[in-house]
Amino acid sequence: MSAPLALRVVEHEAQVFKRFWRGTLFGYVLNPLLYLAALGFGLGSLITENQGEVAGLPYVEFVAPGLMAAAAMQAAAADSLWPVMAGMKWIRWYHGMVATPLRPRDVYTGSVAWTAMRAGLGATVFLVVAALLGAIPSAWGVLAIPSAALTAAGFAAMLAAYAATQEVDLRFPLIMRLGILPLFLVSGTFFPIDQLPGWLQVCAWASPLWHGVELCRASTTGMLEAVDLAHLAFLVGFLWVGWLWGIRSFDARLTA
């Protein structure tokens, strides 16, 4: 019963999305163009000149999947903090939902699922743009789409669960600046994590984004290995823990 009910929430989100999909899609195209031009090709040409390949790859091929996973994480974070506060407190449409057969957990699950779907759409556009720019050497690259979506789902689940515990959005900018941004920088997005000092490497292992980046990179380069199952398992675990928290925090908030 839970899945179909959550789908009704997805339908709501899609209905809202219909109103501004053009702008969103434009952003999805612009984002990889800018990042790949600046980092993949701009910075990348410097790196190639001085050092040659990074982790056995031309830099643009190395950085593209990293950026793809990171974009999914950032989109998920932005979609899961303020919009949840709006649904709970500012505009309160969540309260309209839970006055129907939908339960708080359906509202939560549907919102997270939608965020993951949107991130998947963003990742698809990213992949197409990157492929056109020659940054995706392998057809296995399509597997990077679900990998990015799963990464996004994990962050969405965790952050939406957290947002539902907050009365005001005071801490949200801090989460973006002190949580999401550092992860973006040290999760193997721009350089292999073995370049990091030892203690930061340990941090990177704990970073869900790193596991997402590794999965995406293994896909787009066609170098999937057994270890990627461990990355997959980590991301599934991250999503599961977030979800367990979220169904509780949404329930507590919406049935007070």
Partner: peptide, 29 residues
Amino acid sequence: RARLGVVPQDDTLDLELTVRDNVLIYGRY
């Protein structure tokens, strides 16, 4: 709740959606 109609004290409408879409999506719930 499937058999209730609820008009809460504070509105919980979807401000982003049109009047008609608000009713439509509610029916879908």
